[in-house]
Design a protein around this nucleic acid. Structure first.
Lengths: 144, 144
DNA sequence: CGTGTGGTGGGAGATAGTGGTAAACTATGA
DNA sequence: TCATAGTTTACCACTATCTCCCACCACACG
């Protein structure tokens, strides 16, 4: 299970180190794609295949399904993890997520999310401010 | 059942001793995550697994579920208890909970809460001031 | 007082993250 | 067709941090 939060740098060659804790679980081939809320999603290849299979079952006739497919699939790139645990982040994805150098990697279940550090900080502030909603959710799952 | 309150120090290497009384019950693998009211939750691995199972059942498409997952899952870290009963507290969690050195560990049912000492003192003051009101509520639900 | 246990601190080796260099490949123009 | 410039890929190197182990101190208890 991918959990935790790490801040790493994208260097001048667009290389990004993955946290060593996740490398075993992620494997050597990943898929990076446009995510929701202006971040990027990173999936292990297996997870990605599972997802695309589900997407394939969606009714193609609907306009919003087509839109989602284009958003999600056309933005996807398969990347290899190099010998020291780094991946390359293509320019168009960097641009989409507004990435500069400082990047936050967040483990969410079975995917990793990639955020520009500043956007992540802003987003977290918004979420934390909604403590009552969080408490409600925690209640739902029997934590509190 | 985890009960009681202890004050320990986080040292320069981010290590925190767990009260020896709880070690047997907590086990050797724990999960620390963001909690409510600016504290951290510590769960034994088994409890955590129970929680993540429920989280997996939440609908993923909704914005507030995404927010909750990011708050709770990216805020979680699996930690090992070392040979003398200590765990490592990552920087981003220390920061979230405003931890410096003096930390209060509070046993709450099946989890441990981790507070900055000063915040804990403040919080307790507020709670104690409202104790009679709380007692009324508890009476309503048949506890007292 | 001696002994055991619990909390704290420090040092040496290992590792993760990052930066750089050199080789290989692509593309462009003469 | 070849040369050259720009880009990419693979490999090597450095340093800060983490991990593991050992030592110390304080307090409790017999």
């Amino acid at each position: 299970m991918l959990i935790g939060e790490y801040t790493h740098n994208i260097d001048a060659k667009k290389r990004l180190s993955l946290p060593s804790k996740w490398r075993k679980e992620l494997g050597t081939t990943l898929v990076v794609t446009r995510g929701l809320d202006n971040c990027l999603f990173i999936y292990p290849l297996k997870e990605w295949e599972r997802i695309t299979e589900k997407i394939g079952q969606l009714p193609l006739g609907q306009a919003d399904t087509r839109g989602f497919n284009r958003f999600f699939l056309s933005g996807a790139v398969e990347v290899e993890v190099d010998s020291v645990g780094r991946i390359l982040v293509p320019d168009f994805l960097k641009e989409f997520a507004g990435l500069t150098t400082k990047v936050v990697l967040a483990g969410i279940h079975d995917r990793v999310e990639m955020w520009d550090e500043n956007r992540w900080i802003e987003y977290k502030k918004r979420i934390e401010a909604q403590a009552d909603q969080l408490a409600e959710k925690l209640g739902e799952i029997g934590v509190l």
